[in-house]
């Protein structure tokens, strides 16, 4: 399959890239890993007139801790996220999620920024970023602005990014002591979208009381969903089986899955409940480890 013809630009700096976006407006699409965009172009679901390839722009793929903030460059490949020593130490959830994103070759190309900027509730990082309470940094002609993850996803393939902005960085608060995180998605086979996916980050104090709960859901809602009632059910509590069951029930009620080949609505709600329970246990186990 061959994409419709387009003009290709590969700027060497962020300023040049933004100038091109200003020039071409919403006729332009950013190419990072390309493993969502190029398939859509080949299938002619998308026919952008201009492709701005940002892969030659240096400095967009660093992972590092700056004070109390973890910063991940938007152009960081999923494979780099998967094997990052910093992430392994502080955020085991990235080991969980990257292993389940597509396959090794796709992870060598696909980027964490692209996974978010694509604006697809079926992608895995949105739920993780909700659980971790991340912010997305957008760079545009006016400079840099930070967008809380809860304000980033606006609709199907729609995000808060303006046509002349580029997602350049993801910022995540460093976890307090006693924090654990975990992600799992149920998938029919490698490379499939989630039947359901759940990301959890928890902080437990010395008495085992939950002082932070972040829970994000993948592909069971038109937008990536924060399971707010589930989070509230955990806060200030010790995580007994009853408390966890209540949180799981709320998530299964509050999502809005659509029936497809992966299962009907009832099945997906049931799987959300199962995965919320399991990920709370897994995150809590990591919190005390």
């Amino acid at each position: 399959m061959i994409a419709a013809d387009f003009n290709y630009e590969a700027p060497a700096t962020l300023d040049e890239a933004i100038a091109l976006l200003q020039k071409y407006g919403d006729e332009a699409k950013i190419l990072s890993g390309g493993h969502s965009l190029i398939p859509m172009m080949k299938l002619r679901f998308a026919s952008p007139e201009h492709i701005i390839d940002i892969n030659n722009i240096p400095g967009l793929s660093d992972i590092g801790i700056d004070g109390q903030t973890l910063k991940i460059g938007a152009l960081t490949r999923e494979a780099e996220v998967e094997h990052s020593a910093v992430l392994k130490e502080h955020f085991p959830i990235f080991g969980d999620v990257t292993k389940l994103i597509a396959d090794p070759q796709v992870r060598n190309m696909g980027t964490i920024g692209g996974n978010l900027a694509h604006g697809d509730a079926a992608n895995d990082h949105p739920a993780v970023m909700i659980a971790l309470n991340a912010s997305v940094v957008a760079t545009g002609p006016e400079g840099v602005r930070s967008i809380p993850i809860d304000e980033f996803f606006l609709g199907f393939y729609m995000t808060a990014l303006q046509p002349d902005e580029i997602l350049t960085e993801i910022q995540i608060p460093m976890p307090a002591a006693g924090t654990g995180s975990a992600y799992h998605k149920l998938e029919r086979k490698v490379g499939d979208y989630a039947t359901a996916g759940v990301a959890v980050q928890l902080t437990l104090d010395g008495n085992g009381v939950c002082t932070y709960a972040g829970i994000g859901l993948t592909n069971v809602n038109p937008l990536p969903l924060r399971a707010e009632r589930s989070e509230a059910a955990l806060l200030g509590k010790t995580l007994t089986d009853e408390v966890i069951a209540e949180a799981a029930k709320y998530a299964s009620e509050d999502c809005s899955p659509s029936a497809d080949l992966r299962g009907d609505e009832e099945y997906k709600r049931a799987m959300v409940a199962v995965l919320v329970k399991r990920m709370i246990h897994k995150a809590a186990g990591r919190a005390v480890a």
Partner: peptide, 23 residues
């Protein structure tokens, strides 16, 4: 031709990638 099967895998700067999904 949809980045699923891996038959088009090559190494690009030493990294295995699916050449049907790269320009």
């Amino acid at each position: 031709d949809t980045s699923s099967c891996g038959a088009c895998t090559i190494l690009l700067n030493g990294k295995s990638v699916k050449s049907c999904t790269i320009l």
